[in-house]
Design a protein around this nucleic acid. Structure first.
Lengths: 254, 254
DNA sequence: AGGCATTTGTCCGTATGTATG
DNA sequence: CCATACATACGGACAAATGCC
């Protein structure tokens, strides 16, 4: 059979509506080659049979995906996939947001949403090797690739070491350039943690997700060439829009 | 306030039942310090108020988590967390499954479920730098930490280069030792991709998840010291049981 | 054009699950 | 435990758009 691609079965009384489970299955199926060469899905009746549910239930799933901009339904013709692929976002020693998107022909942009000086929480203080409550600059930004939001980041910087950081960031709109203007020419990714969660309401609003979507969360520390931490950040990626590519480079590019 | 830890808001008409969203929020909150020093949760009435729902709804969430073995409810005393923390799973040049669990005082074990020789798919062939359809050994295994399943992996090896791999794996139960017996003393992680999906029915069964849970998926290639790929693998982690720690080590441990 | 099969869109009623008070 | 309101899921029937003969 053509599309045995969706194998994930459907359960009842799980607290997750059937239409929701089906929507998620279709979403996942898209990245593994669901749909024919034109991105056309099997007809509703066939999907219903595959999932063992009523056609109405499949329709609920599809209409949710349509309003998410994932599918497009045309009466008499069929239902088609709109946005097929994921962006690959590299994590390496020299991870820089805008540069990595530019490589994929996307206009990358990190839009700064807020900027605030505050006392460091225990977590932030530890990551930046500061005293708790030491003043830090907190920046919230949203990463945009092409048209759609990809990620949202909260980043912290030591106010003491980089007093002009807020101004520089506002002026240049780029962490790399702002650091340079503060006298730090280079920095490297020191550590990264990756976790996955269900999207919060904030995620849903800011990243334009549908409820119950997944976010990939990275906790990252950047450090100067002496190994002293200069930036701590938490980034929440829309999981169905990215693959995180981890570049350990034990083998330099040849 | 003591536990403002659960901040994730709750939405209606999302296809995900309120009790389910609350259960997920509590699950997520556990790893970020929800509960007092004894792992005791706030009382149901307080939780209900925090989430803005009826106490009945919180009770549904709790009873689901109790039957999942995450919480324990004691009449008159309170509700307690059973399995508190996430395992941190390092990804570095020298990622080895059993070794990393052992460091955390867990009995690590990779239980081999199946072993099969098959023609390489396009994806596997590309990753291992082989011709498509070339014979490869496919191993399915489940990673266990302590008592609970953490991950499930499908790995592929070049049959031509490592003809004894199947036997060696069965004998030693460890990829590192099996490679050594095949004459490969050392290997390094060449590349890793990280993505996140909703759990499939297979995930739910094998990793003992509840439906709608999240899995972290890594696609990894290991290579010998000359950079030639020797192993390609896909691992699906129970997202609420692990943090992936990415070790780029630009700064060697001091 | 007409006729027909295919496929999505809309309406009805009914049973069960979820959430509140 | 009870009563009430709403969301979810099902089944069936028919309308509307498309494409092909």
């Amino acid at each position: 059979m053509a599309s045995d691609i969706i194998r994930s079965d459907i359960g009842r009384r799980t607290g997750i509506a059937l239409w929701r489970q089906i929507a998620d299955a279709i979403r996942a199926g898209i990245s593994s080659g669901l749909g024919d060469e034109n991105g056309k899905l099997p007809p509703e009746t066939e999907l219903a049979e595959q999932f063992g549910v009523n056609r109405h239930t499949v329709r609920s799933a599809i209409s949710a995906l349509v309003s998410d901009g994932i599918l497009r339904a045309e009466q008499g013709r069929g239902t088609f996939i709109i946005r097929p692929e994921r962006l690959t976002y590299p994590i390496s020693k020299r991870t820089r947001f805008s540069a990595s998107l530019a490589e994929q022909g996307q206009k990358g942009e990190a839009r700064i949403m807020s900027s605030e000086i505050m006392p460091a929480s225990a977590e932030v203080a530890k990551a930046l090797a500061l005293e708790t409550e030491a003043p830090v600059l907190q920046i919230r930004s949203v990463g945009i690739g092409g048209e759609t939001p990809i990620s949202r980041t909260t980043a912290w910087f030591d106010c003491h070491r980089f007093p002009q950081m807020a101004d520089n960031l506002a002026r240049f709109g780029s962490v790399t350039k702002a650091f340079a203007a503060c006298g730090l020419d280079d920095y490297l990714r020191k550590s990264t943690m990756v976790e996955a969660y269900h999207a919060t309401l904030d995620d849903i609003e800011i990243l334009r997700l549908s409820p119950g979507s997944i976010v990939l969360v990275t906790l990252a520390t950047n450090a100067d060439l002496q190994g002293r931490p200069v930036q701590f950040s938490k980034t929440r990626f829309a999981a169905d829009r990215v693959s995180l590519q981890i570049e350990l480079d034990p083998f330099k590019q040849d």
